[in-house]
Nucleic acid binder design. Sequence first.
DNA 1: TATTGTTATACTCTATAACTATA
DNA 2: TATAGTTATAGAGTATAACAATA
Lengths: 177, 177
Amino acid sequence: MTVSKTSEKSSEKTADTAKVRKDAAETQGQGPGEALQLGELSEQLGYVLKRAQLKVFENFLRCMASLQLTPAQFSVLLLVEKNPGRNQTEIASTLGILRPNFVAMLDNLESRDLCARIRSTNDRRSHILVLTDKGKAVLARAKKLVATKHEARLNELLGPSNREALLGMLSKIANEF
Amino acid sequence: MTVSKTSEKSSEKTADTAKVRKDAAETQGQGPGEALQLGELSEQLGYVLKRAQLKVFENFLRCMASLQLTPAQFSVLLLVEKNPGRNQTEIASTLGILRPNFVAMLDNLESRDLCARIRSTNDRRSHILVLTDKGKAVLARAKKLVATKHEARLNELLGPSNREALLGMLSKIANEF
DNA sequence: TATTGTTATACTCTATAACTATA
DNA sequence: TATAGTTATAGAGTATAACAATA
């Protein structure tokens, strides 16, 4: 399992691994205890995009700790507030959430009295989604936290105009790529 | 379960849900069959960042379909090539992969003869990672595919200078946020 | 005692098929 | 028959504890 199938020269397999490290250090100025070189990785948009996304979500969760809202839950509340009278399928698909997976999410929000399912009288198969009064209040507080802690930190880091430019480019990728 | 706990006026609960939709349509110019309004969601960096990341990974997988390499696998091969002589812990932690989760990933790459674990002679606990000849060849082809199909598409969409600016801002977020 | 690689395990996300009740 | 919500389930990805070999 630890045997290399790379070369026929099996003597190389048992070569001193210290030498491998030493050669690498000499060629690239890297020693055993030092940080690794990312190389081309730091130029890969996908890699940097993923790392940035994780950091942003992490910060979002910290900012929202008092309200116990995840990014996904926040997006549901925002979308329901903006689009009253829509059903589960419409809200879920707009957010890229599959209908089966949306059920547990709504169960959670409804059990916390943040939103409610209302059986439609037009089409008794569908559930109209609305924010409860508590849901509206929590969302209002969430928006303030996001603006004053989360987005403010991003503005601080990038500057407002860069932040706008970043948003525009990401939107373009999200919509046209 | 579908009963709203929002209001004491229980008569409202059975109000015609068609009216809710109609009111919404009148207020916001939205009808039942029309697309939902994203509202503030499209200004949330986290939301747009996540959507963009998914699109980029999706495109990456399509471009790499012939080589069957995921973004994570590609990043491992790149990092091992750039840092020969490092062990599993070093490679994994640099990529933000937990050591236990790295085992199956390496099993996969090693079973495909793309990389090999070599027991270190210095410290017989650790496994030095190296690319096999096939691994080097596959990585070279992967780089070409990424450059000519994946990154080229991004340059086409954003323009080279915007792409650079985007990368810089994302790096800043990933490293300093 | 501490560390490397590993196993086992659990929890979240995501994805698909199929059921029910309505249409 | 088709659709909305739901259940069950399976697969990734991610997280922690603990073990064997080695230091």
